[in-house]
């Protein structure tokens, strides 16, 4: 087949809402875009384990400890599903991890903020996982098969993540005055960083146009952000807390809330390495990887030795 014909088949699939599979022909830029997006997503899951892992040893009860452990373990699994999805596009796991560890690859800006109190664990599950779910529900219908299938699995597991976070917020918001203040403080600090998770405004988002054209994304950054605000404000009201946005107001005409944009200068700073915890996160990832080297070496040596024994027998 000539190139034109390959391209027609590819475009035809997108037009018919069919999925593109690893062995199908795809334009180079589509492949590159996917590798970048899926690996960034994978890195976000893995780095995302760090701010929450920070509280596992200090969870206030055994129940909250096992819940948090299970949640963080799920995030590790999400990272693995996504790395294997990226690998179907012809990159190796080593390459992807190396890009993360050398600071070449990006991950979600949200995980460069610190988890200072137990209320932050509530806010992360409720808001950060809430925002992630909104994005991931959309991605279940993304045009690349392995990515879409990983998302279906992930979305099933995510549903408890947001609930456990909201449960923590509920306990605090309906607890003592001090506890309620803790909950409000966490909301104040996490609101705008969470809003940034959907990415820059559509007008300034360099990758959005292609992502929409190729049906990798089906809703724009601003559409998802608006959806998130609409969904979350009633939950904040239920908790008796206040969204840290003086401009937040119901707009009957658009059947949604008007809201303030997050500080996009801060966003740029954080993704380019200058957020409050970027160095700490990268150092923690590198340490874990380096300290695991002997395990990989031993497993490899053991597998090799066993093969030799079989061969000799």
């Amino acid at each position: 087949m000539e190139l034109n014909k390959f391209e027609d088949v590819f475009e035809g699939k997108l037009a018919k809402n069919e999925m593109v599979e690893p062995k199908d022909w795809m334009p180079d830029n589509y492949r590159k875009h996917l590798i970048r997006q899926i690996s960034q997503h994978a890195h976000s899951e893995i780095v995302g384990m760090l701010p929450e892992g920070n509280w596992i040893t200090r969870a206030p009860s055994l129940r909250s400890k096992v819940v948090l452990l299970a949640k963080v373990q799920d995030e590790g699994g999400h990272g693995l599903y996504l790395y294997t999805a990226a690998e179907t596009l012809g990159v190796s796991r080593d390459e992807l991890l190396n890009n993360l560890h050398t600071g070449k690859a990006k991950y979600s800006s949200i995980f460069n903020y610190p988890t200072l109190t137990w209320a932050d664990i509530g806010a992360v599950g409720w808001l950060v996982d809430g925002a992630a779910i909104m994005n991931q529900v959309m991605l279940q219908r993304t045009s690349y098969g392995p990515y879409a299938r990983a998302m279906v699995r992930i979305c099933k597991e995510e549903s408890f993540h947001q609930r456990q976070g909201f449960e923590i917020m509920t306990r605090l918001a309906f607890g003592t005055e001090d506890q309620k203040a803790m909950a409000q403080d966490a909301l104040n600090r996490w609101w705008y960083p969470t809003m940034m998770m959907f990415g820059p405004p559509d007008a300034e988002s360099p990758n959005s146009e292609n992502a929409m054209k190729w049906r990798i994304k089906r809703e724009t950054n601003d559409q998802l952000r608006q959806k998130f605000v609409n969904q979350t404000v009633p939950q904040v009201e239920y908790l008796g807390l206040t969204v840290p946005d003086a401009n937040l107001k119901w707009n009957e005409a658009k059947k949604g809330y008007d809201y303030s944009e997050p500080n996009w200068v801060e966003f740029k700073n954080v993704i380019s390495g200058n957020g409050p915890c970027n160095k700490e996160r990268l150092a923690a990832r590198n340490k874990a990887h380096d300290e695991g080297a002997w395990v990989r070496e031993a497993a490899q040596a053991f597998a090799k030795k066993r093969k030799e024994v079989y061969a000799a027998a």
Binding site: T84, S92, R93, L97, D290, A293, R296, E297
Partner: peptide
Amino acid sequence: MSDNQGPVW
């Protein structure tokens, strides 16, 4: 130091 992740299954 090994960066090898092992074969895919």
